[in-house]
Amino acid sequence: MTDFKDIEAIWHNQSDQSDMADAKDIEQKAKAHLRQSARLHRTNIIIFGATLLSLVVFVITPIGLHSASSQLGIVAMISILALRMLLEIWSRIKLRRIGIDTGSHAYATQMLNFYSWRQRLSGGVSASMAVIYVAGFALLLPEFAKSMSNWAFYLIVIGFSILAFIITRLAIKATKREMSHLRSIKNAVMSLK
């Protein structure tokens, strides 16, 4: 079986796969997938939005922050959160614009560009944003120490540290996954050249 004609003959000798899903089942799965994506998108917006809103409410209430350093800190935290939200929305728009029905060469190249952009975002940009966010929080601490009881102060510091640790772990995991995608897409693009 080395002549290509023989290979073709073998290929055409295959029988059809009989136990494939029904079209209605695929439609149901597609609808469920669509609902799940929409739910995930809504959840992300609600989480980001609620955090942002609570920070804004905190800063505008009369019992809020008074010192210049605290105000600078909260502005830094709000700005970073808002910027992160915008970047995620922009990222979704960019990904959606890559039509899966374009030729494979163009599609893989666009996906490569997208993941390269995400790599830049996940690297220096995200790290800088995280540092600014933590620095913003640190600027709030002197005023928290003055205005809160000890246990409440330590609760906030420990809570923030645990949250920061979890978010950092998740971000590193997501970044590694995206970098692995990037490497594989590079291989796919190279194989198309």
């Binding site: 029905d101 494979s104 893989a108 594989s184 897409i185």
Partner: peptide, 27 residues
Amino acid sequence: STFRGDARISTWVYRIAANTCLMYIRK
């Protein structure tokens, strides 16, 4: 819903198939 009809439906389906496979292999 985005199929514009500027390619044959088979070409359109196989583009999606090829691209899905390319991305699936990376996963």
